[in-house]
Computed example of a mutant assay.
Amino acid sequence: MSWITEYVRPKIRGLLRRDVPDNLWTNCDSCSQMILTKELHRAMNVCPHCGHHMKASVPDRLAWTFDNGECTRIELPPAPVDPLGFRDQKKYTDRLKDARAKSHLDESLIVAHGTIGGHPSVVGVMAFEFMAGTMGAAFGERFVAAARLAVLQKSPLVIFTASGGARMQEGAISLMQMPRTTIGVQMLKEAGLPYIVVLTNPTTGGVTASFAMLGDVQIAEPNALIGFAGPRVIEDTVREKLPEGFQRSEYLLDHGMLDMVVKRKDMRETLARVIGLLMRTPVTPEGGKLEATPAATMPDAAPAAPAA
């Protein structure tokens, strides 16, 4: 080999090589366009080319939801780690350790409180990055704790859903969380407090079959997959071609399953407006609260009946 091959060529390659971070670019899940990761984060993980709403991490979701991104996470009650001693290809305990290491979270539901448009609020965010946001015994404990905190603070509870359903490693125990979370919703209703659900992509399985569809107001992000079973499973079962956009946010809105579909950039403002209406404490354009308006003097209140 000549000195050009052994010496000159490596030198030239070394001069031309630049250290490029692995996460500099991100591929859009929908249109496959390459997007600068920094630009994507500034756009709240919404593709600037096609408007597709990508998955969001728990810290990002909390930062986008609360005023100035400021909130306080609450300490949540512990739950049995491996109630069934389950094992498939790996031990369930090992899967939990891996999920915690990769996501930097301890479970699939994180709860925090702060203000949204000046309104004190309790927010629960499901972490799809933690075992696909599945629902187990720990999840049920956390959901009820969030409901109790909302009742204690006399605040609304907002839940962002993103889940593959019940956690198979906990068997029937995971299914028991469906009525358990329903009890948490009932606690809010008995206290006269708003329960708002924001459905994100995807929301499926036992989550959809329980607390995710019990909100006083049902909001969804655009084009989110929402359903119990997946479209392919349903198509194979009924042996019919499903309608275009079946189980997507816009389809469910057209068929009365949702109250509104809201873009991510408008979510905080929408939540603030909805909470203000339900709590009867609207917010001024400057962000300050107005006094609550008695129902009898509200513009849409029915006139008093004439005296007999």
Rank of each mutant, 00 (worst) to 15 (best):
T93N: 12
P120T: 04
G124C: 13
T93G: 11
H119R: 02
D94Y: 09
A127C: 00
K97Y: 02
S103L: 04
V111T: 11
V122K: 09
G118W: 03
V111Y: 04
S108F: 13
H104E: 13
D98W: 12
R100G: 11
T93D: 13
L109H: 02
S108V: 07
R95K: 11
A99M: 11
H119I: 02
S121L: 03
D106A: 14
T93L: 15
H113E: 12
S108H: 06
A127I: 00
M126Y: 02
D94P: 12
G114M: 06
V125Q: 08
D106E: 15
V111M: 13
A112F: 00
P120Y: 10
S103T: 13
E107G: 15
D98H: 12
D94Q: 14
L105F: 14
S108L: 08
I116W: 06
A99L: 02
S103G: 11
H104R: 15
L105Y: 08
G114E: 07
H119P: 00
A99Q: 10
L105Q: 13
V111S: 15
E107H: 14
V123E: 08
S108A: 15
L105S: 08
S108M: 10
V122A: 03
G117F: 07
A112Q: 00
K102A: 02
D94M: 09
L105K: 07
G124Q: 06
L105V: 10
D98S: 12
L96Q: 09
K97H: 08
A112N: 00
V125Y: 02
E107M: 12
S108E: 07
S103P: 01
K97W: 04
S103D: 09
A127S: 00
G118A: 03
L96K: 13
H113Q: 11
E107F: 14
A101P: 01
K97A: 14
K97N: 07
S108K: 14
V125E: 05
S121E: 03
S103F: 10
D106W: 14
G124T: 02
I110N: 09
P120K: 01
S103V: 01
V125L: 12
D94W: 10
L96D: 09
K97G: 08
I116T: 03
H113V: 06
G124P: 05
G118N: 01
H104I: 10
V123C: 01
V125C: 13
V123W: 07
G118P: 01
R95T: 05
L105C: 05
H104W: 12
G124R: 02
V111C: 11
D106C: 14
S121P: 07
K102I: 03
I110G: 01
V111L: 10
G124D: 09
R95P: 06
G118K: 02
D106S: 15
D106G: 14
H119V: 00
K97L: 10
T93H: 06
R100Q: 15
T115P: 01
G124Y: 01
M126A: 10
T115C: 05
L96E: 07
K97C: 12
G118I: 01
R100W: 01
S108G: 14
T115S: 09
G114A: 06
H104V: 06
L109Y: 05
G118Y: 00
V111K: 04
I116D: 00
